[in-house]
């Protein structure tokens, strides 16, 4: 399902990105890599996710246009 269909506070794993190669590569380098676990901090514009195990990791804000193309699996 697209990232934009999750709700705030929900955790999920990333399955794939259907974005142009350079944008997928950027997101992957920023930490949004396949199977990474993240928590949704805010939905809407922008969509904010906190990536990383436990208390470590980082926060990435994505415009809704990007988040629509990020496919995830709730966990």
């Amino acid at each position: 399902m697209p990232l934009t269909q999750l709700s705030r506070g929900q955790s999920a794993r990333l399955e794939s990105c259907t974005l142009p190669e350079f944008e997928s590569a950027e997101l992957r380098a920023m930490g949004l890599k396949p199977e990474c676990e993240f928590r949704v901090c805010k939905m809407g514009e922008p969509c904010i996710v906190s990536i990383g195990p436990g208390a470590s990791g980082c926060r990435i804000a994505l415009s809704k246009k990007l988040a629509d193309h990020v496919h995830v699996r709730p966990c």
Partner: peptide, 8 residues
């Protein structure tokens, strides 16, 4: 236009 993705 390139959509934004930023580390906060």
């Amino acid at each position: 236009s390139r959509p934004m993705a930023l580390e906060l």
